[in-house]
Amino acid sequence: MDALPDFRVLNPETLDEALAARAQHPDSKPLGGGTDLVVNIRRGILAPSVLIDMNRVKELHAIKVDENSIEIGASVRLTALAQHSDVIAHYPVLAQAAAHIAGPTHRNMGTVGGNLCLDTRCIYYNQSEWWRAANNHCLKTTGSMCHVAPKSRGVCFATYSGDLAPALLTLQAEIDLAGPNGKRTIPLEHLYIGFARQDVPVTETQGDGKFFLSLRPGEIVVAVRAKNTPGLRSAYDKIRIRRSIEYPVAGVAVALKREGDKLTDLRIAFTGTNPRPVLLAGTAELCGGGIDERVIKGLDALVRDQIMPMKTTFTPGHYRRRVAGVLARRLMTRLYES
């Protein structure tokens, strides 16, 4: 038994109590299912002095869903989301993304808030203390350089790997945050700032694999919301090395609308590729006709320009980019023809 570093666990039962606890302990971390956070604490990557258990906060447990809109509390479990019949019926991309995460026991524990705030990953980071020490650590922890890109000038490229974010990005979701200065709602896309900035300081809109969330100090995720678009078809798929207990090599969410023989709306988002989940820009230009050579080539070009996997996993970056492109094409075609 290796003792964990010393920390306190607080178990608030209301959102106000949780926010007060967070304000009182600036060094605290919210604890969802712990399937990411506790692993990182065990590996000596993180050592928060206080954990705030979000699982008893009663305001955070609801899934409010119908054919018009959906709102999911931060402490909702992935299993509940994946199995909810109205989510499956009206927001298939979301139910499928949830069902693709880790394994069934992990999904019983893992929460929506924890999944959205999932730490970025890298083979030089998700390692034991002694492994990282033997490799002189790296920028994302206490080291002075990036082992993936040694010339990166202070930038970390660790990969964002959560599966819910791309699904929610295709639904144009918004996220409700609460913190010491009150509540705010932002487009989910703006939560993620892992842009691999070069030679500019980290700001609230520009970060990298280390500073990848725009959460302000003391802020927590309360809920995530989206509106339905009538006629939207959507689906999620991912490639991984084995079928469960495994992060994505690449994950893709696609939502589209077909009217007659025309593609009239197309949204594609990726995970497991960049330091942020990427909602592909420029897909509107691919709409207007059927899925032909022009659309396929156009999609490939967008993927080539915007999907930038680095060697942060065991599979090489160029392979992950190809996989991402192929998955996107397959899903798009399948949905269009379905």
Binding site: V9, N11, V38, V39, N108
Partner: peptide
């Protein structure tokens, strides 16, 4: 060393959970 094998699985309120990633302080 955490979350990758399932050998530590127990039931919490009848649902399988990984005891190696669960803090005892959360199960009151």
């Amino acid at each position: 060393d955490g979350g990758e094998c399932g050998a530590c699985t127990v039931l919490i309120d009848d649902e399988p959970a990984l005891s190696c990633l669960t803090l005892a302080a959360t199960i009151a």
